[in-house]
Design a protein around this nucleic acid. Structure first.
Length: 466
RNA sequence: GACCCCAUCGUCUAGUGGCCUAGGACACAGGGUUUUCAUCCCUGCAACACGGGUUCGACUCCCGUUGGGGUCGCCA
């Protein structure tokens, strides 16, 4: 089997790894790296190892480790071996460091900064190192541009490049798939493989994920952690689908793909070389596609936490009622988190009015007459359902000899406070007869005294749920 | 600054010398459907960074330029 001209040995025993440092939440960049490793392993029937690179005792936290596990779980990424913690493998690294020391490849530092002497690898003065990268083909470095490599820090822990090489070898990693930002570490690691007498694994450096301005995605670009996207109400399957399409494409114009389809089509040979800008608009679109396809029951379950944390529904709210409301907004949703904002008026006692909608539809000639007739009509209907409401509206429409929209628009604003809503009859049923009548009557009095409770600009923000 | 990487519509991408007057999707614009919004449908917009080669023929290969990005820690 060959990829970009590189012959790959033992493709039947693929083993890859994801090796995050637990110094913060899982970044979308890290998530994509994890995903590509996982997809490759699953596609090849290989194995994925999870290794926590917590050699930096100061910056590593248990909280971060937990957050990373949570995010991986949310993404649906599972692993076959590990998690291994580098903090528990000090003796192993020490042994190999001593081996390099005794063979003369490394020396101990003069200045003692900690309790130990640092062990440092002596770099050959000038040597060309060619990395055979599956994505980039050959990349050449001259060792003259590097400084000597720290193997063991003076606090007794192993440094990144060393621990990484020792572990990747001991854990039997065949393919190292990681971000492009590691490519300049690779020649250093190659030197260590050689000195240690380890065979070289295959390397695949995947391009970075970029922010809207083309620079590496970072906090200043907004949401960058997987947890944030979860909290903002993205569906995990949609997020995974989107992430997979960042830097990789199946080649046949498919966009919406199930995880299984992605696994089947995935290959390192179709990963691009160019950094990819994280386009939230496309994520939102894809998320909307998934939401529209969700079973109502599932969507309701996904959305309830947001309604609860917004204080709009509680444990006692009738779930069937919530489900009905959700069914009305399903095709309007891009993320779960916007549900409170667009369904609030169904649940709250009082509503606030959109100022421009009021001006446009309520402060007009004849509106009071129309609303009055609607109130009468509703109160006289024995059953408050879509069918009867429609009959009632038609009757008034004919009586007054006016168009449908002349009737419907004012009523919509009166009962929802907004010019946009799901179909009016369903919406009214969702609001309930009593509430509708009350709002209609209130509206009448607001029109009279010109004292509408308008919506303020600061709509409550979505409540991120971690 | 040194080293490395990258370069197709605004964005994600298809494209491996002729099938390309460059395809798809998002975004955007316009139209249709709808009682509004959304959905859905249709249409439009818009790209091979530049300059040299190689070749009968380059988006595709080579060189250079420009532009962007990454890395230069006893962080990972």
């Amino acid at each position: 089997m060959t990829y970009r001209g590189v012959t790959m040995l033992k493709t039947e025993n693929i083993k890859v790894r994801f090796a995050p440092a637990p110094t913060g939440y899982l970044h979308v960049g890290g998530a994509r790296t994890a995903l590509f490793n996982w997809l490759y392993a699953r596609n090849k029937g290989g194995k994925l190892v999870l290794r926590i690179e917590d050699t930096d005792a100061v910056r590593s936290t248990e909280e971060s480790t937990k957050a990373i596990f949570d995010s991986l779980k949310w993404l649906g990424i599972d692993w076959d071996e590990g998690p291994f913690f580098q903090s528990e493998r000090k003796e192993i690294y020490r042994t190999y460091a001593e081996r390099l020391l005794s063979k003369g490849f490394a020396y101990e530092s003069e200045d003692v900064k900690g309790t130990h002497k640092a062990v440092i690898f002596r770099l050959p003065s000038s040597r060309k190192i060619v990395i055979k990268d599956i994505i980039h083909d050959d990349v050449e470095f001259d060792t003259a541009v590097f400084k000597d490599i720290v193997l063991m820090k003076s606090d007794g822990t192993a440094a990144y490049n060393f621990a990484c090489v020792v572990d990747d070898h001991l854990m039997g990693i065949t393919h190292i798939i990681r971000g492009d930002d590691h490519i300049s570490n690779t020649p250093k690691q190659v030197l260590l493989y050689e000195a240690l007498g380890f065979p070289l694994p295959n390397f695949a450096h995947v391009p970075l994920i970029l922010g809207p301005d083309g620079s590496r995605l970072s906090k200043r670009h907004g949401a960058t952690s997987v947890g944030q996207y979860k909290g903002e109400g993205y569906f995990n399957k949609a997020f995974v689908n989107f992430l997979a399409l960042l830097g990789w494409a199946p080649g046949d114009n498919r966009e919406k793909m199930s995880t299984g389809e992605i696994i089947d089509s995935f290959g390192l040979d179709r990963i691009g070389k160019k950094g990819a800008i994280f386009d939230v608009k496309k994520l939102q679109w894809l998320n909307g596609v998934y939401i529209r396809e969700m079973a109502l029951e599932d969507l309701t379950g996904a959305v309830i936490p947001y309604l609860e944390s917004a204080g709009i529904v509680d444990k006692d709210t009738d779930r069937e009622h919530v489900k009905f409301i959700v069914s009305l907004v399903q095709e309007r949703l891009k993320t779960f988190s916007e549900t409170p904002a667009i369904t609030g008026f169904f649940f709250t006692k009082d509503i606030f009015y959109d100022e421009s909608a009021v001006k446009k539809y309520l402060l007009k000639e004849g509106v009071e007459t129309i609303l009055g007739k609607i109130i009468c009509g509703i109160e006289n209907e024995e059953r408050f359902d879509v069918e009867n409401l429609e009959k009632c509206f038609v009757k008034i429409k004919e009586e007054m000899n006016i168009s449908n929209s002349k009737l419907i628009h004012p009523v919509r604003v009166a009962v929802t406070g907004s010019a946009a809503s799901p179909p009016i009859f369903e919406t009214m049923v969702g609001i309930g007869k009593e509430n509708c009548v009350k709002r209609l009557k209130n509206t009448l009095s607001f029109i009279n005294d010109g004292d509408f409770p308008f919506k303020t600009q600061n709509v409550p923000p979505p409540n991120p749920i971690e």
